[in-house]
């Protein structure tokens, strides 16, 4: 046999083996792997905060600090995000140049919060609510919106508001979905930036402790309530804006809203919230 045909043969054998491996991989129950992670993750938080009920972690740092909770409850009596929800509703129903509207893209009157984030098997990527809103806009010849704040955050706030109480059940059912999930997981646990810190370092290991005067929220519940009206921002902003802020605080390059990295991170973080309910929008310091 010539060298070339040996190479061809090897290539063929390699391909067959590869197909066999990926075929057997089809048999892997990815959801079971994720469910096991969720149990471990939530058990860790429960051990740190034995007195807090699972559902209450959706309230972030206010679930673990009774004094801050009292002040927050007072703020929530006249929610600072109300106006954003109203504006979001108007934008949701506003006709595009082609006469259609966002309402045409979303079923159930737009109460679709717990359909997101999901792994779109055809596109091979995680689709978030904000991404789906922008997809609807561009599909209808409109311009996509800024992923950090403004109209996109308002529309997201409206959708979250009319979806309150929907249970979180992120599904990870294919090798590709699991890969995206693992990327998000890796992002969450990896140290980065000049300060060499990870999301998990602060929001798991040191959750409940104080960084200066700020009490650190546990990561369980991180994605239930976005977008948030932050008093510090003086306006409503998206989850990815918060991600960028936490990245910046440790001297790491903030990534773009709706970047693949942040979508995968949201996918992982929301999966860890499986069993909780969506309760956005919310107010935060």
């Amino acid at each position: 046999m010539s060298r070339l045909s040996v190479a061809r043969l090897l290539q063929a054998v390699f391909l067959i083996v590869l197909t066999m491996v990926s075929n057997s991989a089809l048999a892997v129950n990815y959801q079971a792997l994720v469910d096991a992670d969720v149990r471990k993750f939530q058990a860790y938080i429960h051990k740190e905060f034995p007195d807090v009920r699972t559902a209450d972690f959706a309230d972030g740092v206010y679930a673990i600090d009774s004094q801050a909770r009292k002040q927050w409850k007072e703020v929530e009596e006249f929610p600072p995000y109300d106006l954003a929800v109203d504006e979001g509703k108007a934008l949701f129903n506003k006709p595009f140049a082609n006469g259609k509207s966002l309402a045409g893209c979303f079923p159930n009157g737009g109460a679709v919060r717990n359909k997101y984030p999901y792994f779109d098997e055809k596109r091979g990527q995680v689709v978030t609510l904000e991404m789906a809103i922008n997809d609807c806009l561009t599909a209808n010849g409109e311009k996509p919106l800024n992923g950090m704040k403004g109209d996109l955050a308002k529309i997201s706030a409206y959708i979250a508001f009319i979806s309150r109480g929907q249970p979180i059940h992120v599904k990870v059912e294919s090798a590709a979905a699991y890969k995206a999930y693992l990327k998000g997981k890796q992002f969450f646990y990896a140290k980065r930036g000049q300060l060499n810190m990870s999301c998990a370092g602060c929001h798991m290991e040191y959750a409940g402790r104080q960084l200066r005067s700020e009490i650190i929220s546990p990561a369980l519940g991180h994605t239930t309530h976005f977008p948030v009206f932050r008093l510090k921002w003086g306006e409503i902003g998206t989850l990815h804006r918060r991600y960028a802020g936490c990245n910046e605080n440790i001297g790491a390059k903030p990534l773009a809203a709706q970047s693949e990295e942040y979508r995968d991170l949201e996918f992982f973080q929301t999966a860890m919230c499986n069993g909780l309910s969506f309760n956005g929008p919310a107010s935060r310091k």
Binding site: R209, Q210, L211, R212
Partner: peptide
Amino acid sequence: CLACHMMAGGDDPGNF
């Protein structure tokens, strides 16, 4: 350092 450590004379220390 005050973000994480109590130190004499420093306000609002953290407790990491």
